[in-house]
Design a protein around this nucleic acid. Structure first.
Length: 475
DNA sequence: ATGTTC
Protein backbone atom coordinates (compact mmCIF):
# COMPACT_ATOMS: atom_id res chain seq x y z
CA UNK A 1 0.00 0.00 0.00
CA UNK A 2 1.27 3.43 -0.94
CA UNK A 3 1.26 5.64 2.15
CA UNK A 4 1.39 8.84 0.06
CA UNK A 5 -2.36 8.63 -0.48
CA UNK A 6 -3.00 8.44 3.28
CA UNK A 7 -2.99 11.04 5.99
CA UNK A 8 -1.32 10.05 9.26
CA UNK A 9 -3.39 10.98 12.31
CA UNK A 10 -1.32 9.20 14.97
CA UNK A 11 1.76 6.94 14.93
CA UNK A 12 -0.56 3.94 14.38
CA UNK A 13 -3.64 5.50 12.78
CA UNK A 14 -4.13 6.61 9.19
CA UNK A 15 -7.00 7.91 7.13
CA UNK A 16 -7.87 8.17 3.46
CA UNK A 17 -8.69 11.82 2.67
CA UNK A 18 -12.09 12.38 1.09
CA UNK A 19 -12.75 14.23 -2.12
CA UNK A 20 -15.08 17.17 -1.39
CA UNK A 21 -18.09 15.82 -3.28
CA UNK A 22 -17.62 12.25 -2.14
CA UNK A 23 -20.39 10.75 -0.02
CA UNK A 24 -18.71 8.13 2.04
CA UNK A 25 -17.84 7.58 5.67
CA UNK A 26 -14.31 7.90 6.96
CA UNK A 27 -11.74 5.18 6.34
CA UNK A 28 -9.41 4.50 9.26
CA UNK A 29 -6.44 2.14 9.09
CA UNK A 30 -4.76 1.05 12.31
CA UNK A 31 -1.13 -0.02 12.10
CA UNK A 32 2.47 1.07 11.73
CA UNK A 33 3.89 2.37 8.47
CA UNK A 34 5.83 -0.87 7.75
CA UNK A 35 2.72 -3.01 8.24
CA UNK A 36 0.61 -0.77 6.02
CA UNK A 37 3.32 -0.66 3.34
CA UNK A 38 3.32 -4.46 3.25
CA UNK A 39 -0.45 -4.61 2.66
CA UNK A 40 -1.99 -5.02 -0.78
CA UNK A 41 -3.66 -1.88 -2.24
CA UNK A 42 -6.80 -4.00 -2.33
CA UNK A 43 -7.09 -3.61 1.46
CA UNK A 44 -7.50 0.16 1.09
CA UNK A 45 -9.82 -0.21 -1.87
CA UNK A 46 -12.01 -2.65 0.04
CA UNK A 47 -12.06 -0.54 3.20
CA UNK A 48 -13.08 2.46 1.08
CA UNK A 49 -15.84 0.41 -0.60
CA UNK A 50 -17.27 -0.53 2.81
CA UNK A 51 -17.40 3.18 3.71
CA UNK A 52 -19.93 3.64 0.86
CA UNK A 53 -22.44 1.12 2.27
CA UNK A 54 -25.72 2.53 3.64
CA UNK A 55 -25.94 3.36 7.33
CA UNK A 56 -22.26 2.93 8.17
CA UNK A 57 -21.47 4.67 11.45
CA UNK A 58 -18.25 6.54 12.11
CA UNK A 59 -15.70 4.84 9.90
CA UNK A 60 -14.83 1.75 7.94
CA UNK A 61 -11.74 0.45 9.72
CA UNK A 62 -8.93 -2.05 9.31
CA UNK A 63 -6.82 -3.69 12.00
CA UNK A 64 -3.00 -3.93 11.86
CA UNK A 65 -3.18 -7.50 10.48
CA UNK A 66 -5.54 -6.66 7.60
CA UNK A 67 -5.36 -8.35 4.21
CA UNK A 68 -7.44 -8.75 1.08
CA UNK A 69 -10.69 -10.64 1.61
CA UNK A 70 -14.01 -11.39 -0.09
CA UNK A 71 -15.73 -8.00 -0.32
CA UNK A 72 -14.67 -6.71 3.08
CA UNK A 73 -10.99 -6.87 4.00
CA UNK A 74 -10.04 -9.54 6.54
CA UNK A 75 -9.19 -7.48 9.60
CA UNK A 76 -12.11 -5.19 8.77
CA UNK A 77 -14.46 -3.58 11.29
CA UNK A 78 -17.60 -1.65 10.37
CA UNK A 79 -20.71 -0.75 12.38
CA UNK A 80 -24.16 -0.03 10.99
CA UNK A 81 -27.27 1.63 12.42
CA UNK A 82 -30.47 -0.23 11.54
CA UNK A 83 -32.48 2.95 12.04
CA UNK A 84 -30.47 4.75 9.39
CA UNK A 85 -30.83 2.11 6.71
CA UNK A 86 -27.78 0.24 7.99
CA UNK A 87 -27.01 -3.07 6.31
CA UNK A 88 -25.84 -6.55 7.17
CA UNK A 89 -23.36 -8.17 4.80
CA UNK A 90 -22.30 -11.79 4.31
CA UNK A 91 -18.85 -10.63 3.18
CA UNK A 92 -18.60 -8.50 6.31
CA UNK A 93 -18.82 -11.57 8.51
CA UNK A 94 -16.91 -14.04 6.37
CA UNK A 95 -17.74 -17.53 5.18
CA UNK A 96 -16.32 -19.25 8.24
CA UNK A 97 -18.91 -17.73 10.56
CA UNK A 98 -17.66 -17.36 14.14
CA UNK A 99 -14.26 -18.80 13.37
CA UNK A 100 -12.33 -18.16 16.55
CA UNK A 101 -9.92 -19.37 19.19
CA UNK A 102 -10.54 -21.30 22.39
CA UNK A 103 -7.64 -20.87 24.76
CA UNK A 104 -7.06 -23.34 27.59
CA UNK A 105 -4.61 -22.82 30.46
CA UNK A 106 -3.13 -25.85 32.16
CA UNK A 107 -1.46 -26.76 35.42
CA UNK A 108 1.47 -28.20 33.44
CA UNK A 109 4.87 -26.57 33.13
CA UNK A 110 7.22 -26.87 30.19
CA UNK A 111 9.47 -28.98 32.41
CA UNK A 112 6.66 -31.49 33.08
CA UNK A 113 5.46 -31.66 29.53
CA UNK A 114 8.51 -31.37 27.27
CA UNK A 115 9.76 -34.96 27.64
CA UNK A 116 6.43 -36.24 26.33
CA UNK A 117 5.72 -33.80 23.53
CA UNK A 118 6.16 -36.44 20.83
CA UNK A 119 3.66 -38.74 22.46
CA UNK A 120 1.32 -35.80 23.09
CA UNK A 121 1.54 -34.75 19.43
CA UNK A 122 0.60 -38.25 18.24
CA UNK A 123 -2.23 -38.57 20.75
CA UNK A 124 -3.74 -35.17 19.91
CA UNK A 125 -3.39 -35.86 16.19
CA UNK A 126 -5.29 -39.10 16.66
CA UNK A 127 -7.97 -37.53 18.87
CA UNK A 128 -8.71 -34.38 16.85
CA UNK A 129 -10.26 -34.95 13.41
CA UNK A 130 -8.73 -32.45 10.99
CA UNK A 131 -8.79 -31.74 7.27
CA UNK A 132 -11.29 -30.73 4.59
CA UNK A 133 -14.56 -32.62 4.96
CA UNK A 134 -13.05 -34.72 7.71
CA UNK A 135 -15.66 -36.18 10.02
CA UNK A 136 -15.27 -37.29 13.61
CA UNK A 137 -16.78 -40.09 15.64
CA UNK A 138 -19.55 -37.83 16.89
CA UNK A 139 -22.64 -38.04 14.72
CA UNK A 140 -25.70 -35.90 15.32
CA UNK A 141 -29.08 -35.97 13.64
CA UNK A 142 -30.99 -32.99 12.26
CA UNK A 143 -33.04 -32.59 15.44
CA UNK A 144 -29.83 -32.40 17.44
CA UNK A 145 -28.36 -29.93 14.95
CA UNK A 146 -31.36 -27.68 15.56
CA UNK A 147 -30.71 -27.90 19.29
CA UNK A 148 -27.02 -27.08 18.76
CA UNK A 149 -27.90 -24.06 16.62
CA UNK A 150 -30.18 -22.85 19.40
CA UNK A 151 -28.07 -23.70 22.45
CA UNK A 152 -24.44 -23.38 21.34
CA UNK A 153 -21.78 -24.57 23.78
CA UNK A 154 -24.52 -25.19 26.35
CA UNK A 155 -25.67 -28.13 24.25
CA UNK A 156 -22.17 -29.57 24.28
CA UNK A 157 -21.80 -29.24 28.05
CA UNK A 158 -25.25 -30.75 28.59
CA UNK A 159 -24.13 -33.78 26.56
CA UNK A 160 -20.95 -34.37 28.51
CA UNK A 161 -18.44 -32.31 26.55
CA UNK A 162 -16.73 -30.11 29.10
CA UNK A 163 -18.19 -28.38 32.11
CA UNK A 164 -20.28 -25.39 33.10
CA UNK A 165 -17.18 -23.48 34.23
CA UNK A 166 -16.15 -23.36 30.56
CA UNK A 167 -19.33 -21.50 29.68
CA UNK A 168 -18.54 -18.50 31.84
CA UNK A 169 -15.45 -17.78 29.76
CA UNK A 170 -16.99 -17.95 26.31
CA UNK A 171 -18.38 -14.83 24.64
CA UNK A 172 -22.09 -14.59 25.50
CA UNK A 173 -21.55 -17.54 27.86
CA UNK A 174 -21.46 -19.94 24.95
CA UNK A 175 -24.81 -19.11 23.39
CA UNK A 176 -25.89 -16.11 21.34
CA UNK A 177 -29.54 -15.10 21.41
CA UNK A 178 -31.72 -14.69 18.33
CA UNK A 179 -30.51 -17.77 16.49
CA UNK A 180 -33.11 -19.06 14.04
CA UNK A 181 -32.36 -22.66 12.97
CA UNK A 182 -35.31 -22.49 10.54
CA UNK A 183 -33.35 -19.92 8.52
CA UNK A 184 -30.59 -22.49 7.96
CA UNK A 185 -31.09 -24.80 4.97
CA UNK A 186 -31.38 -28.53 5.33
CA UNK A 187 -28.28 -28.89 3.16
CA UNK A 188 -26.25 -26.75 5.59
CA UNK A 189 -27.48 -28.85 8.51
CA UNK A 190 -26.80 -32.14 6.72
CA UNK A 191 -23.24 -31.08 5.98
CA UNK A 192 -22.66 -30.58 9.68
CA UNK A 193 -23.96 -33.96 10.91
CA UNK A 194 -20.51 -35.53 11.06
CA UNK A 195 -18.46 -32.37 11.54
CA UNK A 196 -19.15 -31.49 15.16
CA UNK A 197 -15.88 -31.74 17.10
CA UNK A 198 -13.70 -31.40 14.01
CA UNK A 199 -10.97 -28.87 13.30
CA UNK A 200 -11.32 -28.26 9.57
CA UNK A 201 -8.48 -27.11 7.32
CA UNK A 202 -6.72 -23.99 6.06
CA UNK A 203 -5.48 -21.81 8.89
CA UNK A 204 -7.21 -23.88 11.57
CA UNK A 205 -5.06 -25.60 14.15
CA UNK A 206 -4.71 -26.95 17.65
CA UNK A 207 -1.51 -25.78 19.27
CA UNK A 208 0.27 -26.68 22.51
CA UNK A 209 2.09 -23.54 23.62
CA UNK A 210 4.31 -22.29 26.42
CA UNK A 211 4.01 -18.90 28.09
CA UNK A 212 7.40 -17.47 27.26
CA UNK A 213 7.02 -13.88 28.35
CA UNK A 214 4.66 -11.86 30.51
CA UNK A 215 4.17 -8.20 29.59
CA UNK A 216 1.49 -7.23 32.08
CA UNK A 217 1.76 -8.90 35.49
CA UNK A 218 -1.62 -7.76 36.80
CA UNK A 219 -3.52 -8.92 33.74
CA UNK A 220 -1.53 -12.19 33.63
CA UNK A 221 -2.54 -12.84 37.23
CA UNK A 222 -6.20 -12.24 36.41
CA UNK A 223 -5.93 -14.51 33.34
CA UNK A 224 -4.17 -17.19 35.42
CA UNK A 225 -0.96 -17.08 33.35
CA UNK A 226 2.68 -17.46 34.38
CA UNK A 227 5.98 -18.03 32.57
CA UNK A 228 6.74 -21.61 31.64
CA UNK A 229 3.07 -22.63 31.76
CA UNK A 230 1.56 -24.86 29.07
CA UNK A 231 -1.52 -23.63 27.21
CA UNK A 232 -3.54 -25.11 24.37
CA UNK A 233 -5.23 -22.97 21.73
CA UNK A 234 -7.86 -24.32 19.35
CA UNK A 235 -8.55 -22.31 16.20
CA UNK A 236 -11.60 -23.35 14.19
CA UNK A 237 -15.09 -22.31 13.20
CA UNK A 238 -18.51 -23.41 12.00
CA UNK A 239 -17.20 -25.85 9.37
CA UNK A 240 -19.46 -26.91 6.49
CA UNK A 241 -22.58 -25.40 8.04
CA UNK A 242 -21.25 -21.86 8.23
CA UNK A 243 -19.79 -22.08 4.75
CA UNK A 244 -23.05 -23.32 3.28
CA UNK A 245 -24.97 -20.48 4.98
CA UNK A 246 -22.47 -17.98 3.53
CA UNK A 247 -22.82 -19.42 0.04
CA UNK A 248 -26.62 -19.38 0.10
CA UNK A 249 -27.10 -15.99 1.73
CA UNK A 250 -24.60 -14.32 -0.55
CA UNK A 251 -27.14 -14.87 -3.34
CA UNK A 252 -30.16 -14.01 -1.20
CA UNK A 253 -28.63 -10.72 -0.03
CA UNK A 254 -27.39 -9.85 -3.53
CA UNK A 255 -30.96 -10.19 -4.79
CA UNK A 256 -32.27 -8.12 -1.87
CA UNK A 257 -29.74 -5.36 -2.60
CA UNK A 258 -30.78 -5.32 -6.22
CA UNK A 259 -34.52 -5.33 -5.36
CA UNK A 260 -34.05 -2.42 -2.97
CA UNK A 261 -31.85 -0.44 -5.34
CA UNK A 262 -28.77 -0.50 -3.10
CA UNK A 263 -25.81 0.40 -5.27
CA UNK A 264 -22.83 -1.76 -4.44
CA UNK A 265 -19.30 -0.55 -5.18
CA UNK A 266 -18.33 -4.23 -5.46
CA UNK A 267 -20.72 -7.13 -6.04
CA UNK A 268 -18.90 -9.07 -3.34
CA UNK A 269 -20.39 -6.60 -0.85
CA UNK A 270 -23.86 -8.15 -1.20
CA UNK A 271 -25.89 -6.86 1.72
CA UNK A 272 -29.42 -6.04 2.83
CA UNK A 273 -30.84 -3.54 5.28
CA UNK A 274 -30.81 -4.93 8.82
CA UNK A 275 -34.53 -4.20 8.95
CA UNK A 276 -35.34 -6.00 5.65
CA UNK A 277 -36.77 -9.55 5.68
CA UNK A 278 -33.64 -10.92 4.01
CA UNK A 279 -31.38 -9.06 6.44
CA UNK A 280 -33.29 -10.43 9.41
CA UNK A 281 -33.25 -13.91 7.90
CA UNK A 282 -29.47 -13.86 7.49
CA UNK A 283 -28.94 -12.52 11.02
CA UNK A 284 -30.98 -15.46 12.40
CA UNK A 285 -28.96 -17.95 10.33
CA UNK A 286 -25.64 -16.29 11.22
CA UNK A 287 -26.44 -16.44 14.94
CA UNK A 288 -27.27 -20.13 14.52
CA UNK A 289 -23.85 -20.63 12.90
CA UNK A 290 -22.18 -18.76 15.77
CA UNK A 291 -23.77 -21.23 18.19
CA UNK A 292 -22.57 -24.09 15.99
CA UNK A 293 -18.98 -22.81 16.16
CA UNK A 294 -19.17 -22.29 19.93
CA UNK A 295 -20.46 -25.86 20.35
CA UNK A 296 -17.75 -27.15 18.03
CA UNK A 297 -14.95 -25.52 20.03
CA UNK A 298 -16.55 -26.80 23.25
CA UNK A 299 -16.53 -30.40 21.96
CA UNK A 300 -12.94 -29.99 20.77
CA UNK A 301 -12.04 -28.72 24.24
CA UNK A 302 -13.41 -31.96 25.69
CA UNK A 303 -11.59 -34.16 23.14
CA UNK A 304 -8.39 -32.26 23.93
CA UNK A 305 -8.77 -32.85 27.66
CA UNK A 306 -9.40 -36.57 27.18
CA UNK A 307 -6.31 -36.84 24.94
CA UNK A 308 -4.08 -34.91 27.34
CA UNK A 309 -5.21 -36.95 30.33
CA UNK A 310 -3.93 -40.07 28.57
CA UNK A 311 -0.43 -38.61 28.71
CA UNK A 312 -0.59 -36.48 31.85
CA UNK A 313 -2.90 -38.08 34.35
CA UNK A 314 -3.25 -35.05 36.61
CA UNK A 315 -3.44 -32.48 33.87
CA UNK A 316 -6.16 -29.86 34.16
CA UNK A 317 -7.21 -27.53 31.41
CA UNK A 318 -9.42 -24.59 32.24
CA UNK A 319 -10.96 -22.34 29.65
CA UNK A 320 -9.13 -19.01 29.71
CA UNK A 321 -11.41 -17.57 27.06
CA UNK A 322 -13.08 -18.23 23.72
CA UNK A 323 -13.02 -15.42 21.14
CA UNK A 324 -14.84 -15.30 17.84
CA UNK A 325 -13.37 -13.30 15.01
CA UNK A 326 -15.92 -13.59 12.18
CA UNK A 327 -19.18 -12.14 13.46
CA UNK A 328 -21.71 -9.38 13.36
CA UNK A 329 -23.03 -8.51 16.80
CA UNK A 330 -25.60 -6.02 18.02
CA UNK A 331 -23.81 -3.94 20.64
CA UNK A 332 -24.28 -0.59 22.30
CA UNK A 333 -21.49 1.89 21.65
CA UNK A 334 -21.16 5.52 22.47
CA UNK A 335 -21.06 7.69 19.35
CA UNK A 336 -20.61 11.45 19.76
CA UNK A 337 -21.44 11.13 23.43
CA UNK A 338 -24.65 9.14 22.92
CA UNK A 339 -25.16 5.37 23.31
CA UNK A 340 -26.41 3.72 20.11
CA UNK A 341 -27.32 0.14 19.25
CA UNK A 342 -25.12 -0.83 16.33
CA UNK A 343 -24.51 -3.95 14.28
CA UNK A 344 -20.74 -4.33 14.44
CA UNK A 345 -19.21 -6.46 11.69
CA UNK A 346 -15.87 -7.91 12.70
CA UNK A 347 -14.31 -9.97 9.95
CA UNK A 348 -10.96 -11.30 11.01
CA UNK A 349 -11.15 -9.02 14.01
CA UNK A 350 -11.71 -9.81 17.68
CA UNK A 351 -14.10 -8.13 20.05
CA UNK A 352 -11.94 -6.47 22.70
CA UNK A 353 -14.03 -5.00 25.50
CA UNK A 354 -12.04 -2.77 27.83
CA UNK A 355 -11.79 -2.84 31.62
CA UNK A 356 -15.11 -2.55 33.44
CA UNK A 357 -17.32 -3.81 30.62
CA UNK A 358 -20.38 -5.49 32.17
CA UNK A 359 -20.32 -8.39 29.66
CA UNK A 360 -16.95 -9.60 30.97
CA UNK A 361 -16.67 -12.40 33.51
CA UNK A 362 -16.03 -10.96 36.94
CA UNK A 363 -12.55 -12.45 37.10
CA UNK A 364 -11.42 -10.37 34.11
CA UNK A 365 -13.57 -7.30 34.53
CA UNK A 366 -10.86 -5.12 36.02
CA UNK A 367 -8.25 -5.84 33.33
CA UNK A 368 -10.37 -6.17 30.19
CA UNK A 369 -11.36 -8.94 27.81
CA UNK A 370 -8.77 -11.54 26.86
CA UNK A 371 -7.85 -11.10 23.20
CA UNK A 372 -5.90 -13.76 21.31
CA UNK A 373 -3.67 -12.96 18.37
CA UNK A 374 -3.08 -16.37 16.86
CA UNK A 375 0.27 -16.45 15.12
CA UNK A 376 1.17 -18.32 11.99
CA UNK A 377 2.35 -21.91 12.32
CA UNK A 378 5.49 -22.06 14.36
CA UNK A 379 5.97 -18.35 15.13
CA UNK A 380 4.07 -17.64 18.30
CA UNK A 381 0.86 -16.09 19.57
CA UNK A 382 -0.09 -13.29 21.92
CA UNK A 383 -2.68 -12.89 24.62
CA UNK A 384 -3.73 -9.31 25.09
CA UNK A 385 -6.35 -7.46 27.12
CA UNK A 386 -8.92 -5.06 25.72
CA UNK A 387 -7.96 -1.41 26.23
CA UNK A 388 -10.14 1.26 27.73
CA UNK A 389 -11.15 3.89 25.22
CA UNK A 390 -13.40 1.72 23.08
CA UNK A 391 -11.36 2.28 19.92
CA UNK A 392 -12.65 0.74 16.71
CA UNK A 393 -15.92 -0.18 18.49
CA UNK A 394 -13.83 -2.24 20.94
CA UNK A 395 -12.04 -4.39 18.37
CA UNK A 396 -8.52 -5.69 17.91
CA UNK A 397 -6.36 -7.80 15.60
CA UNK A 398 -7.03 -11.52 15.34
CA UNK A 399 -3.83 -13.00 13.98
CA UNK A 400 -0.65 -12.41 12.05
CA UNK A 401 -2.62 -11.85 8.85
CA UNK A 402 -1.52 -13.25 5.52
CA UNK A 403 1.22 -11.42 3.66
CA UNK A 404 0.92 -13.47 0.47
CA UNK A 405 -1.69 -15.65 -1.23
CA UNK A 406 -1.99 -19.40 -0.76
CA UNK A 407 -1.00 -19.78 -4.39
CA UNK A 408 2.20 -17.79 -3.94
CA UNK A 409 3.01 -19.74 -0.78
CA UNK A 410 2.59 -23.07 -2.61
CA UNK A 411 5.02 -21.97 -5.28
CA UNK A 412 7.59 -21.01 -2.70
CA UNK A 413 7.56 -23.67 0.03
CA UNK A 414 7.35 -27.44 0.36
CA UNK A 415 5.33 -28.78 3.28
CA UNK A 416 7.73 -31.58 4.17
CA UNK A 417 10.73 -29.24 4.31
CA UNK A 418 8.82 -26.82 6.55
CA UNK A 419 7.83 -29.60 8.95
CA UNK A 420 11.49 -30.69 9.20
CA UNK A 421 12.67 -27.13 9.69
CA UNK A 422 10.13 -26.49 12.45
CA UNK A 423 11.08 -29.80 14.15
CA UNK A 424 14.65 -28.48 14.32
CA UNK A 425 13.29 -25.48 16.19
CA UNK A 426 11.52 -27.78 18.64
CA UNK A 427 8.06 -27.39 17.11
CA UNK A 428 6.27 -30.65 16.28
CA UNK A 429 3.77 -30.50 13.41
CA UNK A 430 1.18 -33.20 12.77
CA UNK A 431 -0.91 -32.91 9.63
CA UNK A 432 -2.82 -34.83 6.98
CA UNK A 433 -1.99 -32.23 4.34
CA UNK A 434 1.55 -31.22 3.41
CA UNK A 435 0.01 -28.94 0.82
CA UNK A 436 -1.87 -27.21 3.64
CA UNK A 437 1.39 -26.76 5.53
CA UNK A 438 3.01 -25.10 2.51
CA UNK A 439 0.03 -22.76 2.14
CA UNK A 440 0.35 -21.87 5.80
CA UNK A 441 4.12 -21.34 5.75
CA UNK A 442 5.21 -18.90 8.48
CA UNK A 443 6.80 -16.76 5.76
CA UNK A 444 3.42 -16.32 4.07
CA UNK A 445 2.23 -14.32 7.09
CA UNK A 446 3.06 -10.95 8.56
CA UNK A 447 5.39 -10.81 11.55
CA UNK A 448 3.10 -11.49 14.51
CA UNK A 449 5.40 -9.53 16.84
CA UNK A 450 4.90 -6.41 14.75
CA UNK A 451 1.13 -6.96 14.64
CA UNK A 452 0.90 -7.35 18.43
CA UNK A 453 3.11 -4.33 19.01
CA UNK A 454 1.08 -2.19 16.61
CA UNK A 455 -2.17 -3.40 18.20
CA UNK A 456 -0.91 -2.12 21.51
CA UNK A 457 0.51 1.15 20.13
CA UNK A 458 -2.78 1.81 18.33
CA UNK A 459 -4.60 1.56 21.67
CA UNK A 460 -6.72 -1.42 20.58
CA UNK A 461 -5.47 -3.92 23.18
CA UNK A 462 -2.42 -4.30 25.42
CA UNK A 463 -0.04 -7.23 25.39
CA UNK A 464 -0.25 -9.60 28.34
CA UNK A 465 1.73 -12.68 27.30
CA UNK A 466 3.71 -14.17 24.42
CA UNK A 467 3.17 -17.87 23.69
CA UNK A 468 5.76 -20.08 22.00
CA UNK A 469 4.36 -23.03 20.00
CA UNK A 470 5.54 -26.54 20.87
CA UNK A 471 3.10 -28.94 19.19
CA UNK A 472 0.75 -28.09 16.34
CA UNK A 473 -2.03 -30.23 14.88
CA UNK A 474 -2.63 -28.54 11.57
CA UNK A 475 -5.97 -28.58 9.79
C1' DA B 1 -12.73 -20.83 5.01
C1' DT B 2 -14.94 -24.83 1.80
C1' DG B 3 -17.71 -32.50 0.49
C1' DT B 4 -10.91 -27.06 -2.08
C1' DT B 5 -14.59 -26.35 -9.93
C1' DC B 6 -22.56 -27.86 -7.70
Amino acid sequence: MNLQQLHQLEPCLWTLPRATAEKRAEVLLYGTAPLLVSMDDKVLEQAANVAFLPGVVGASMTMPDAHWGYGFPIGGVAAFDAGQGGVISVGGVGFDISCGIRCLRSNLSLQDAAPRFNELADTLFHAIPAGVGEEGEIKVNLTQIDQILQEGANWAVKHGYGNTADLEYIEEHGRVADAVPDNVSELAKKRQRGEMGTLGSGNHYLEVQMVERIYDAAAALAFGLHEGQILISIHCGSRGLGHQIGTEYMLILAKAASRLGIRLPDRELACAPIKSPEGQQYIGAMNAAINCALANRQILTHLTRVACEKIFRDAEFETLFDVSHNTCKAETHEVDGKPRLLHVHRKGATRAFGPGHPALPERYRKVGQPVVIGGSMGTGSYILAGSSGNRAFASASHGAGRAMSRHQALARWKGRALVDELAQQGILIRTRSMRGVAEEAPGAYKDVDLVAEATEQAGLARRVAFLRPKVCVKG
